[in-house]
């Protein structure tokens, strides 16, 4: 799952699908497929602003999605988008929504597991940083006390 989530798009591919999207936008009608293609590319961009834009386009598609299959596909990539911008709690809401449509969807289960592992790791890392700070502070206090005692 890591490969799927962390994979970045070739900028030329992004440019190509952006061009198709913009052309349809100029003509006044953007097809669901063109919007999806562009959104899927955007969330795989290196830039966070593109990822946000991709998520917004997918959320927009969710409002018009007619069948479970397309809803499931949009939900999955919204989840991937939120993982990429490190909004894990929000990402989990979307993997849960997929579970309601396809309870046994393996990709969604794997993504869910990946997100939870990330959260755990980040949580531990966070604690390690706080822990480190406490130790450093303790050291400082200890040094100060020692310095005071010397006097």
């Amino acid at each position: 799952m890591e490969t799927i989530v962390e994979e970045n798009i070739d900028p030329n591919d992004l440019k190509k699908f952006e061009g198709l999207y913009n052309e349809q936008a100029r003509r006044g009608h953007i097809s669901e497929k063109t919007q999806f293609d562009y959104a899927w590319c955007l969330i795989r961009s290196r830039y966070v602003s593109d990822m946000h834009k991709g998520i917004a386009l997918l959320e927009d598609l969710m409002r018009i999605a007619k069948d479970d299959l397309s809803q499931r596909d949009y939900l999955f990539y919204i989840a991937v988008g939120f993982v990429r911008i490190k909004e894990y709690e929000r990402a989990l809401k979307y993997t849960e929504a997929i579970r309601k449509i396809e309870p046994n969807n393996r990709q969604a289960q794997q993504l869910d597991g990946y997100i939870k592992a990330k959260m755990k790791k980040d949580g531990l890392l966070g604690m390690a940083i706080v822990g480190g700070a406490v130790l450093a502070l303790g050291g400082l206090v200890g040094a100060t006390i020692a310095a005071v005692k010397k006097k």
Binding site: I4, L69, D73, N105
Partner: peptide, 8 residues
């Protein structure tokens, strides 16, 4: 279920 996008 049908694959979403790509699998690896």
């Amino acid at each position: 279920p049908h694959t979403i996008g790509v699998e690896f």
